[in-house]
Design a protein around this nucleic acid. Structure first.
Lengths: 251, 251
DNA sequence: GGAATATTGTCCGCCACCGTACCTAAAACC
DNA sequence: GGTTTTAGGTACGGTGGCGGACAATATTCC
């Protein structure tokens, strides 16, 4: 079973997304027709290359991004040497979350981790829509709550788990957000996201590879045994994903 | 400067809270009059003794709690031996957050860490109010976003900081939520919240005490140098509090 | 094809924290 | 007042991950 299965749009969604490509984003896809009429025209398509900064830490928000493919990382930054990923999102979410409740400044940095494309709206349009479009506002709020659950599990795994377990959880979350079983990643980048040394990532990957859970090549990791990975991740994977499904629906 | 100063209600607030004691809660205090008319009558006063469980992990939500004094802890639970605090809240918030967007199940466990009192509403009333009372809904959503920022800093400090630095941050956050400089806490309880061994808390407290930042007695910790604590906490304290002020206002 | 660069593999000493155990002192109880 | 309970102090070996350095491959670029 590949991750693609989890995320392959249903035929109904395919038809809908044919009407507007932005509806590949799970949140936008759930908007009622009377709200899409106003939201969709305000969207501007954007390519999201790896490393693209959606918003800086403590920086004013200019646009709100709805990703259709690729992965974004939300990174907490306290100092140059003190930074770590809080959570990640793909086409099931949006960023920066603060804009979803009327905020104008982002606490965290948000950057593209796996390249893709999506759409963006000027902050002002989002802010206004929050009061005029209740379903839109509630949808964004629901995502913030689901994402908050994800972050709380990041916090948990950061103290209770060893590097290899945290890595397993992180790879599973990436897997959920890409098509297929291959993910383009370097050890160095992973080490930044997990907040560990680069060599720690190398040895942790060797552990997973030794258990036949993944296959690691230069700049690319292939998931081979998803179920085994979940067992290895020591119960830190799954609950936040459940919360998303309860509050919003399938990824 | 004591924490009490931060939280002492302004004279305007005192007058308002005289009209209804639940308005000591910062969120309820910000509701417009036309919304309080419906929200306040649905509130039931509750005592919140230490250890009281507001909601269990993965459990259905029955009531939504608005604290007026004391501190609640939001704890992520993956297994009996795998649990750690994600964040804490006092009269500036509510719990469980999931109910604030229409959820009926709480991912995390929420329990009372420092005793106090507050008010609670049946879940059903909250859920209905979300669609009929837009300011109420937005206020809860703003708190969820602010709390999410707090959790992301917990996640950061969990990997980048040593136990004594994390302890300093945690004590500062407690200090913000009690009146005065004394906090009733045992090493054992702190160790549960920080996810470390109890002896690690003892030695970390000795470090802070050696620097004259706190004074530790049996079952009680007194903050003596708030500024020094902030310096010691290595930039992991402050940003989430800023986000709260930006989105909602003073604590 | 060869040089420069990016990525990955491996080693070493170090230390913060762990698990566990045991002891002391303060408070509560009868 | 003496016993039980609860909270705090200390010790010890073990270890996961750190900081840092260096070597060995793939890729890319000229």
């Amino acid at each position: 079973m590949t991750a693609a299965r989890h995320f392959r749009p249903t035929s109904a969604r395919i038809m809908k997304s044919a009407s507007h490509p932005a509806l590949q984003n799970r949140l936008l896809a759930l908007l009622p027709e009377n709200e899409t009429h106003v939201i969709l025209p305000a969207l501007e398509p954007v390519d999201l290359p790896r490393g693209f900064v959606i918003v800086g830490a403590d920086a004013p928000i200019e646009h709100v991004y709805f990703i259709c493919s690729g992965i974004g990382s939300v990174v907490t930054v306290a100092a140059e040497t003190q930074r770590a990923e809080a959570g990640m999102f793909g086409r099931e979410g949006f960023a920066p979350t603060s804009a979803g409740v009327g905020g104008t400044i982002s606490v965290q940095e948000v950057l593209i981790q796996v390249e893709g494309h999506g759409f963006r709206m000027p902050l002002k349009v989002v802010t206004e829509a929050l009061s005029t479009h209740p379903t839109f506002a509630n949808l964004l709020a629901r995502f913030i709550q689901a994402f908050s659950a994800q972050i709380s599990y990041t916090a948990l795994s950061n103290i209770t788990c060893q590097v290899d377990e945290r890595l397993a959880r992180w790879l599973l979350m990436c897997h959920d957000r890409v098509d297929g079983d291959e993910i383009a990643l370097t050890h160095d980048f992973i080490s930044l996201m997990l907040g560990v040394r680069r060599p720690s990532v190398t040895t942790a990957l060797h552990v997973l590879e030794g258990r036949k859970l993944i296959q690691a090549e230069r700049g690319r990791i292939t998931i081979r045994d998803r179920k085994g990975m979940q067992d290895f991740a020591a119960r830190t994977y799954g609950k936040p994903e459940e919360e998303y499904r309860r509050l919003i629906g399938e990824f």
